[in-house]
Amino acid sequence: MNQAVWAVCFALFAVGLSLLILRRELLVMLLGLELMVNAANIGVVYGASLTGDAAGLSAALLIIAVAAAEAVIGLSLILRVYQSGRSPESDVLRELRG
């Protein structure tokens, strides 16, 4: 059971991270980010459920809230990119480098 849950958790996390690394579309990358957070949250929830720790479960709720806030900020930034007339892709945003 442990292994199965953690395998799912890590797999989802890895998928999220891969999206972040491999995909250029900012929205997809945001998706990957959310995937990472939620994959980790699975671990928290599973840990809390094993011991019935209410603190752990409330932590999971808090994390979901934080993730939501993060998503809002991410979306607003992506919107800014749209508004500046650029396509929301990481390839475009390479003015700063070196």
């Binding site: 991270l17 972040l20 690394i21 491999l22 990358m29 990481s90 390839d91 945003l93 700063l96 070196g98």
Partner: peptide
């Protein structure tokens, strides 16, 4: 070394990984 900073955030995350 400055060439490592490609400007692409994907690469940045790759380096983090």
């Amino acid at each position: 070394g400055a060439a490592l900073a490609t400007g692409s955030v994907n690469d940045y995350v790759w380096w983090m990984a």
